[in-house]
Simulated scan of single mutants.
Amino acid sequence: MQVFAQPLFAAIEDRVSSKWPSNFLLEARYEVKLLFSTQTIWKVTLFSLIMRTTVVLLTTLVAILVPFFNSVVGLLGAIAFWPLTIYFPVAMHKSQTNVKKGSMKWFLLQCLVLASLSVSVIAAIGSLVGITKSLKHSKPFQAKY
């Protein structure tokens, strides 16, 4: 979920900082030294800390209230995995290194792309099955222990 949330966090922070550039929540940057690290310093604003914590709390609340939340997240992951993790990086690699069409390297990369596509399709089907099973047996906003 964190991978999908980072662009959202950046867009919200950019929009708020352009709308209210002199807001005290955005101006003050605090440096926090991380434990067990000699050089790593985390720079944070109060707005990003509050906003990110709120998003995590709301996501957790939705996960508790919606019984099929894990299946929905699995479906989103299955849909996003193949193009973002396999197809586009492989296409960029083939373009940047001028892999010749029909060569052994091209063929193996195509096999990787097709194999990972099939894994993503199977994962998406499994998530859809999980969603439909949960919807058959669930009562909204009631926990089943």
Results as ranks from 00 to 15, higher is better:
residue 119 V to K: 01
residue 80 A to V: 08
residue 130 G to T: 03
residue 52 R to I: 12
residue 4 F to D: 01
residue 140 P to L: 12
residue 59 T to G: 15
residue 140 P to E: 03
residue 83 P to K: 07
residue 81 F to E: 04
residue 16 V to S: 08
residue 134 S to D: 13
residue 74 G to Y: 00
residue 86 I to N: 11
residue 126 G to R: 01
residue 104 M to N: 11
residue 11 A to T: 09
residue 35 L to G: 11
residue 97 T to S: 13
residue 46 L to K: 01
residue 24 F to W: 00
residue 127 S to L: 01
residue 20 W to N: 12
residue 123 A to V: 02
residue 35 L to H: 10
residue 142 Q to S: 04
residue 42 W to K: 15
residue 115 A to C: 05
residue 26 L to Y: 00
residue 97 T to E: 09
residue 35 L to A: 14
residue 137 H to E: 10
residue 9 F to M: 07
residue 59 T to V: 15
residue 27 E to H: 05
residue 43 K to M: 14
residue 69 F to Q: 02
residue 56 V to I: 14
residue 73 V to K: 01
residue 50 I to Y: 00
residue 108 L to I: 14
residue 84 L to Q: 11
residue 63 A to V: 05
residue 123 A to D: 00
residue 41 I to M: 11
residue 10 A to F: 05
residue 18 S to H: 10
residue 14 D to F: 07
residue 54 T to R: 04
residue 82 W to C: 13
residue 94 K to D: 12
residue 11 A to R: 07
residue 82 W to K: 13
residue 1 M to H: 02
residue 132 T to A: 15
residue 79 I to C: 10
residue 91 A to T: 09
residue 15 R to H: 11
residue 66 V to P: 00
residue 49 L to F: 08
residue 87 Y to P: 03
residue 74 G to N: 05
residue 38 T to Q: 12
residue 91 A to P: 01
residue 61 L to A: 09
residue 35 L to V: 14
residue 95 S to G: 13
residue 91 A to F: 07
residue 98 N to C: 09
residue 25 L to V: 08
residue 81 F to D: 05
residue 87 Y to E: 12
residue 10 A to M: 05
residue 138 S to I: 10
residue 130 G to S: 09
residue 31 E to P: 06
residue 65 L to A: 13
residue 17 S to A: 15
residue 98 N to M: 12
residue 13 E to G: 11
residue 110 Q to E: 12
residue 67 P to L: 09
residue 30 Y to P: 03
residue 103 S to P: 06
residue 139 K to L: 14
residue 127 S to W: 00
residue 16 V to Y: 10
residue 104 M to E: 10
residue 58 L to R: 04
residue 129 V to P: 00
residue 77 G to H: 01
residue 63 A to I: 02
residue 100 K to V: 14
residue 117 L to W: 02
residue 30 Y to N: 13
residue 48 S to D: 03
residue 98 N to A: 15
residue 30 Y to L: 06
residue 90 V to S: 13
residue 113 V to M: 06
residue 118 S to W: 02
residue 123 A to W: 00
residue 45 T to M: 10
residue 120 S to E: 01
residue 3 V to Y: 04
residue 52 R to Y: 05
residue 30 Y to W: 02
